[in-house]
Computed example of a mutant assay.
Amino acid sequence: MTVAGEFSLAAVLPLLGMLATLAASWGIVRFQAAQHDKRIARLDERCEALGKELAEFKVEAVQRFVSDEALAKVESRISDGFNRLADRLDRLVEATPRRTPRS
């Protein structure tokens, strides 16, 4: 049996099968692409949320934590205070009369 003159049904059926396979493959690829697009959109939203959280943390860290310069200033003030206290104690010890041992 021939279709349109020279084409036999045996030759047309495999071509139709290949076209159906290509159409099904294209549909599957489009479906998977749509699924990946959705996943990428969710990941983009998550990245944006994490970026906002990181920015908020950076602001909190700047407000909460001490800078190296401020820490050095506090350390210097404490050290100076201890040195002044040691000097006062030295003067106090030097100013107190010494006892002489009894014989």
Rank of each mutant, 00 (worst) to 15 (best):
A10F: 06
A95T: 06
E69S: 04
L43S: 05
V93D: 14
V62C: 00
N83T: 14
R46L: 15
F31C: 00
A4S: 07
R102G: 01
F7V: 02
L92K: 14
S25G: 07
A34S: 11
R46T: 10
K58T: 08
A49G: 03
D80L: 12
L89I: 15
L71C: 07
V12K: 11
R39D: 09
G17V: 05
A11K: 09
G81H: 13
G81E: 13
A70C: 02
D90H: 10
V66N: 10
A70I: 00
D44P: 01
E94L: 10
A70E: 15
A70T: 02
K38Q: 14
L43M: 12
L71A: 15
D90Y: 10
G5F: 03
L54G: 02
A23T: 12
V62Q: 10
R46M: 11
L85D: 07
R42W: 08
S79Y: 07
N83V: 11
C47P: 00
R64A: 05
R46E: 15
F82N: 14
W26L: 12
R88Q: 13
R39P: 00
G27E: 13
D68M: 08
A86F: 10
A86C: 02
R42M: 11
R88A: 07
R30E: 14
A72W: 09
C47V: 08
A61Y: 08
L89E: 15
E75N: 12
R99L: 15
R64K: 15
H36C: 02
V74G: 05
L89F: 15
L71N: 10
S76F: 06
A11V: 05
K58Y: 06
T2I: 03
A10W: 01
R77Y: 08
R99D: 13
C47F: 07
G17P: 01
H36L: 11
S76V: 01
E60H: 06
R84H: 15
T2W: 02
I40M: 04
R39F: 04
D37F: 03
E53L: 03
A20P: 02
A34H: 08
A49W: 04
L50E: 11
V29I: 13
A20M: 11
E75D: 12
L92S: 13
L15Q: 13
R84Q: 15
E75W: 09
A49K: 09
Q35F: 01
V93Y: 12
K38N: 09
E69Q: 11
C47E: 11
L16P: 01
E45N: 03
I40V: 03
L54W: 05
A72E: 14
E6M: 10
A20E: 10
M18D: 13
T96E: 14
D68V: 01
Q32L: 09
L43H: 06
L19V: 04
L85M: 11
L13V: 05
E45H: 04
R77D: 15
L85R: 07
R98L: 14
A72R: 15
L22R: 07
P14S: 00
V66R: 14
L19T: 00
R99M: 10
A72P: 00
V3M: 11
L54H: 09
F57Q: 08
E94R: 15
V66F: 09
L85Y: 09
S8P: 07
F65V: 04
N83Q: 14
F82I: 05
E75Q: 14
V59Y: 05
